[in-house]
Design a protein around this nucleic acid. Structure first.
Length: 623
RNA sequence: GCUGGCGUAGCUCAGUGGUAGAGCAGGGGUUUUGUAAACCUCAGGUCGCCCGUUCAAAUCGGGCCGCCAGCUCCA
């Protein structure tokens, strides 16, 4: 290993203390994790001197470091690296900071044979750079770091994955090792438990177990088959969605799945979106394309006749199924698919109406998302990059006015948001809302996008009060995103235990023996009369078995019926995830459940971490 | 698309060159059950696909397909 001689001063700890005094807890974690990444890099360089360093920052849940090396890192390598890290931590090496001239730094990393560090250095314009060293390890780094390696005791390496150098797919792919570090052991254990819990909630696993959906290889990648249970959940959501839209002045439309390629040429999709579209269908005279978006159709409906300002705003809504040819590596259960149904809407209005329309949309999204049990949101306002105006369509005035309307609406609704420069679409600024789920994870939800492109491109106008034709203001918006992604997210949010109003099967009647089937059918008939989704389990099994089965299927209510119940016209009610039970008159039970469904009650959210009955039972069995 | 890992019954997983296994789920039977898994029995597999090495391949090699983690991209 190459040793480099430079004058040193220990400053890492000072930085750490300063941050602590400021009470910036996150920064503490960041320093800890960033330091852990350096310890990992040291371990890797000691074990595999041929590995070249990429970058190694702290990230939201831990840290990573990228390495260039011929041979792949195996899980066994990770164990070895962890072991080496432990010895580095035990040695309690100080993190030493040096300030050197850029030129000296170039010499140092030339001597160390670190091409990627040299590439970074060459792009730094400052005269001086900082270098951190601990033991045999030297890194170009802004810092700050811990005082010494001994302070990063609690860590774990998690996995290896490929990552393009500097995030650009035209560059070489490096090997990224992910890990995490915490101040205390309990924090790490909690984090690992969280990861496990997330795995248990995985909508792909629950989707199969609960009979919600499947994706079959011979049907096609990213194409979802909705099984009866999943289709029922979707139906309930779609009914709710339609009702809420009709209440708020939207009009429903239906549009075809394909259209002539000329339409997509005129809309600009063939210029800007072609690589995401399935190849054309040849039908002789003219090609047809599968739709990747619904907007051109809604515009055609709008343009079917001349529109007056008196008609505006016009709000068209459609659960429109679109197809996009996503790259195979990004497909992921319901969250990333190739055929999906957007809860799409296009609002056509005058510039004066824009503010109120945005507020109306925000109200609608908040109401719907809260009904589904999401309480927390993160909002971003994406605007164009002022340095790259050429990459965005439209003039300065239009962009400024649009941004002003969007931000005014957010402020009027008292919603705090992050302003994201350069994140706008090429055709206009947008508001994105992220839902935060029961595990604190973010899910892309509603998006409200202004469009400066299509109205002018497709000549979408209205006749103003002065009799002149004016270009319409067009908003694309979605509340849930897509049915696929939204339901995938809901499954994980609820860990498969849907609140009663959404549950595909709301009630299951469990017979104690064959004798009770007739009574069970009577109860079922009463439930069905009230449109409660119910079924009977009359299998020749013990009641315990049937309870276990219903619990596994996460059915909200189990009604046990036997002699006692039949005689008294009652049912023995067991709620999902609780051993609580009690006899109830059938009518009383129905009234209660009806009320719960009507108000879309959330019930108790799946506790976190949820009670794991299987483990408890096993433990109990040991005695 | 790229990097790495993985692919055995519907599901979860054993099986390291010599006749494919278990549990659960499924079918049949027995039991008629009081709140998280009764008992017996039967059936179920081109070991992802193709090519190769070998007397012999689930097992070794190559290619392809798919899945998983991540990167890039995204609703």
């Amino acid at each position: 290993m190459c040793n480099v001689n430079i004058s040193q001063e220990s400053e890492g700890y000072l930085n750490f203390m300063e941050q602590q005094v400021k009470g910036e807890k996150d920064i503490d974690l960041e320093i800890l994790r960033h330091s852990a990444s350096h310890i990992m890099a040291q371990a890797v360089k000691e074990l595999y001197p041929e590995a070249k360093l990429g970058i190694g920052p702290a990230i939201a849940d831990g840290f990573y470091y990228d390495f260039a090396r011929e041979a792949p890192f195996t899980p066994e390598d990770l164990a070895k690296i962890e072991e080496k890290m432990r010895s580095i931590i035990k040695a309690d090496l100080p993190f030493l900071k040096s300030v050197v001239s850029r030129k000296d730094a170039l010499d140092i990393f030339t001597e160390l044979e670190e091409p990627y560090k040299l590439e970074l250095l060459r792009e730094i314009e400052d005269k001086e750079v900082t270098i951190y060293q601990q033991g045999s390890f030297t890194d170009l780094c802004r810092g700050p770091h811990l005082k010494s390696t001994g302070e990063a005791r609690v860590f774990k390496l998690l996995n290896v994955a490929g990552a393009y150098w500097r995030g650009d797919e035209r560059n070489v792919m490096l090997q990224r090792i992910y890990g995490t570090a915490f101040p205390e052991k309990e924090d790490l254990e909690k984090h690992l438990k969280n990861l496990e819990e997330a795995k248990k909630r995985d909508h792909r696993k629950l989707g199969r177990e609960l009979g919600l959906f499947s994706i079959e290889e011979d049907v096609g990648l990213g194409l979802v088959l909705w099984h009866p249970r999943g289709a029922m959940v979707r139906k309930v959501i779609e009914d709710f969605w339609r009702d809420e839209h009709l209440k708020r002045g939207y009009e429903l439309v239906y549009t075809p799945h394909i259209a002539r390629s000329d339409l997509w040429r005129r809309s600009g999709h063939l210029d800007y979106f072609q690589e995401m579209m399935y190849p054309p269908m040849k039908t002789g005279a003219e090609d047809y394309l599968l739709k990747p978006m619904n907007c051109p159709f809604h515009i055609k409906i709008y343009k079917h006749k001349v529109r007056s300002y008196r008609e505006l705003p016009i709000r068209y809504a459609e659960l429109g199924t679109v197809y996009r040819y996503e790259r195979s590596g990004v497909l992921h259960g319901l969250l990333r698919v190739r055929g999906f149904t957007q809860d799409d809407s296009h609002v056509f209005c005058t510039p004066e109406q824009l503010g109120d329309e945005i507020i109306g949309i925000i109200d609608l999204t908040q109401y719907m998302l809260k009904t589904f049990g999401y309480e927390e949101f993160e909002t971003a306002l994406s605007v164009r990059d002022p340095a790259r105006k050429g990459d965005f369509l439209g003039d300065d005035e239009g962009w400024e006015r649009a941004e002003a309307s969007l931000s005014a609406a957010l402020e009027k609704k008292n919603i705090s948001y992050a302003r994201m420069e350069g994140e706008a679409t090429f055709y206009g600024p947008k508001i994105d809302i992220k839902l935060i789920d029961a595990l604190g994870r973010g899910w892309q939800g509603p998006t409200i996008q202004l469009d400066f492109n299509l109205p002018s491109r497709l000549d979408v106008t209205y006749t103003a009060g002065d009799g002149k034709r004016r270009e319409v203001v067009m908003i694309h918006r979605t509340v849930l995103g897509t049915m696929e992604r939204f339901i995938g997210g809901l499954v994980e949010h609820y860990a498969g235990s849907f609140p009663t109003w959404l549950a595909p099967v709301q009630v299951r009647i469990l017979t104690l023996s064959e004798k009770h089937e007739d009574y069970a059918r009577e109860v079922l008939a009463q439930l069905e009369k009230k449109e409660i989704r119910a079924e009977i389990d009359s299998a020749s099994e013990t009641i315990s078995y049937k309870v276990a089965r219903a619990e596994r299927e996460k059915i909200p209510y189990m009604l046990v019926v036997g002699d006692k119940e039949a005689k008294g016209s009652t049912v023995s009610v067991r709620e999902r995830r609780s051993s609580h039970q009690g006899a109830s008159k059938v009518e009383e039970f129905i009234a209660r459940v009806e009320e719960e469904i009507k108000r879309k009650g959330l019930g108790e959210r799946a506790p976190f971490p949820p009670v794991n009955r299987e483990e408890e039972v096993k433990k109990g069995g040991d005695r």
